[in-house]
Design a protein around this nucleic acid. Structure first.
Length: 595
RNA sequence: CGGGGCAUAGCUCAAUUGGCAGAGCGCUUGGUUCGGGACCAAGAGGUUCUGAGUUCAAGUCUCAGUGCCCCGACCA
């Protein structure tokens, strides 16, 4: 492929970002002419941005194919009937964009494709001999997000790779799940990203069969915790991270007449609702507090009990209760079930309200808690003398003080952007939709499924969040829209430059190096600024000055200083600077090269 | 869905008490420049989001609508 000419390349760069761009990657993608916004959460991908998308797609395809994935295209407009079979038409809510055809038939714009792919498989798969089967697609999805933001990172229409695997039996899906996780690691490594696979919240199902792939970036929306010891390797989304169980939690089993128990006493605490306010007022540590949070499950109250300095993890409570549909009680419900306003509730005196305690709450001796009446708190409350516990579990958010739940070592906190997700589905969909195969003894069995997503557009944005500086983007070579930008100066007035330029134009693209030549009229400064902005990893400058110094100037976007290479050496030197062996450079982006 | 804000040239933004629609950047043409967003000159470019109202007069005030952004609960 010959070098692309910037003078005719559709690359509308902006000196200033549109004012509605709300994070670094969105600003840079808009400024560098990769994307434009059409409506809230809906974007156009321009040629430069598309090239990056295609590179990531190419890497994904190779790695998906390598583990036996087969690419398909599934419909974006899907009939209601399929979504009714799994009840998701009703469950999905407003995020599912619904539409009608001319005959009033109901459809939705696909946010994901479990129903459609399961339908396909149930119609075509008969025998265990046809399994396992892994189908994937890379296509646009639509989720009618309440609040789209951060450019393509949280948009309504987005490009996603979604993959679905079908297996004869639990064991096989477990094995294959590991292969997918391995493939995902390769994908994000090849993209040049610093990432972590973490255990993810898998709701009431539990287990470790949901992983998220997080690109580490300070601007990330997700918080992840990971063990500082790489040998341990524990890493989890904060929503799921296990909290340690304090040693004194065993106290929960002490008898009702423990000699250490002091006599309860009510204290007036007018207008003090929060643990912090009351702790200040009483000069007590929040660790001595018992904090209650009331939830409603099918119309009945459930109380969560925490130590005063801890935060409840709602998902853990839901999983512990085996009830995904719990909700927080409102003000009126506090009064109705506990007889006091929020902020003054305590666990004592509610024999009809089941109390589920976090392990850490079990260790609170002579605790402070609400008195169940307005403007009063009670001190010296003890379990089991003053209240009874229906169950105890890890119910809280982990804190920076918590040790690693696996090895007890130090835990690190990071911000991350979720770019991939792997999930073991089991037979949820195959059972609901009757996707069965005949096993070796002629018994019909529901296929066991896994599903695996990668946000392709989001990966582009995440790569920028992780790789940029004050001047613009700094693409990792493997996903850069071009490998190098060529800038020729003084060509009109210097025949040596002209000669060398012709040579470079002919030679550089030969080994598969993708070159963008900035052949626009204008001062060098403008070209340098734009080259930095769009983040091409290597800049090749040819000028009178560079020739006088012995050749052309090669400068990595990430390097402070350029180097001079003789014209004949420019190609091999460029490849080595980019870390791309000649063969690989040619092979790395077959998709893009054909564009 | 609740709370707040914004809407003027391609982009970023001005416009005093209600009184002629503006600047910088970008764009076009000519000229001078040419290694980090150069300079001079002349231009093009506007339904001031839409609709109604108040007024001699509305970008500005009122009402309604639309779009967008921010803060919270939902999410690849």
């Amino acid at each position: 492929m010959p070098a692309a000419k910037l003078s005719s390349f559709f690359l509308p760069t902006l000196r200033e970002a549109p004012s509605d761009a709300d994070n670094v990657s969105a600003k840079l993608m808009l400024r560098s002419g990769m994307i434009r916004k059409v409506a809230s959460g809906i974007y156009e991908w321009l040629p430069l941005g598309l090239r990056v998308l295609r590179k990531i797609e190419g890497i994904i395809r190779e790695e998906m194919n390598a583990i036996g994935g087969q690419e398909v295209i599934l419909p974006v407009v899907q009939p209601r009937a399929l979504w009714d079979e799994t009840a998701r038409w009703g469950v999905y809510g407003k995020e599912l964009l619904r539409l009608k055809d001319r005959k009033d038939g109901e459809f939705c714009f696909a946010p994901t494709a479990e129903e459609v792919v399961t339908d396909l498989v149930r119609r075509e798969i008969r025998s265990w001999r046809q399994l396992p089967l892994m189908l994937y697609q890379i296509g646009l999805k639509f989720r009618d997000e309440i609040r789209p933001r951060f450019g393509v990172m949280r948009s309504r229409e987005f490009l996603m790779k979604d993959a679905y695997s079908f297996h004869a039996g639990e064991e096989d899906v477990n094995r294959y799940y590991g292969e997918v996780v391995g493939a995902y690691k390769k994908i994000f490594n090849r993209c040049g990203l610093n990432f972590r696979p973490v255990e993810a919240q898998s709701g009431a199902i539990g287990g470790s069969f949901s992983h998220e792939f997080m690109v580490l970036a300070e601007t990330g929306e997700e918080t992840i915790v990971s063990c500082a010891d790489p040998k341990c390797g524990y890493a989890a989304n904060i929503e799921r991270a296990e909290a340690s169980r304090p040693e004194d939690a065993g106290r929960g089993a002490s008898s009702a007449d423990d000699p250490n128990f002091k006599k309860p006493e009510d204290i007036r605490t007018p207008g003090l609702h929060t643990v912090e306010e009351v702790a200040d007022f009483l000069h007590e540590s929040p660790k001595r507090f018992l904090k209650t949070q009331l939830y409603v499950l099918q119309g009945k109250p459930v109380m969560a009990l925490l130590r005063g300095d801890h935060q409840l993890n709602e998902a853990k409570l839901a999983a512990h209760l085996g009830a995904p549909d719990i909700r927080r009680a409102g003000e009126e419900e506090y009064v109705k079930f506990l007889g006091c306003p929020v902020g003054f509730a305590g666990p004592q005196g509610h024999p009809d309200v089941p109390i589920h305690a976090d392990f850490a709450a079990l260790g609170v001796l002579n605790g402070v808690t609400g008195a169940n009446k307005n403007d009063f708190h009670t001190i010296h409350i003890n379990n089991p003398r003053d209240f009874k516990i229906a169950g105890s579990a890890d119910l809280r958010m982990t804190t920076p003080d918590d040790p690693c739940p696996r090895c007890g070592g130090k835990i690190e906190w990071h911000k991350g952007i979720e770019v991939g997700h792997a999930f073991k589905l089991g037979t949820k969909y195959s059972q609901a939709m009757g996707a069965t195969y005949l096993d070796k003894s002629q018994n019909p069995q529901p296929a066991v499924m896994g599903c695996y997503g990668i946000g392709v557009g989001r990966t582009v944005a995440a790569a920028i969040e992780q790789n940029h500086d004050a001047n613009g983007i700094r693409w990792p070579a493997a996903i850069a829209p071009f490998h190098a930008v060529l800038i020729v100066l003084d060509e009109a007035e210097d025949s040596r430059v002209r000669e060398a330029a012709e040579k470079l134009r002919g030679e550089l693209p030969r080994a598969g190096l993708e070159i963008l030549e900035d052949d626009r009229e204008g001062s060098p400064g403008v070209k340098f600024k734009d080259a930095d902005l769009i983040g091409i990893p290597l800049r090749v400058v040819l000028s009178k000055k560079s020739l006088d110094r012995g050749g052309a100037e090669l400068k990595l976007r990430s390097a402070p200083q350029p180097e001079i290479a003789p014209i004949a050496e420019c190609l091999p030197r460029s490849l080595s600077l980019l870390g791309l062996p000649a063969k690989e450079a040619a092979a790395i982006t077959p998709e893009v090269s054909k564009l």
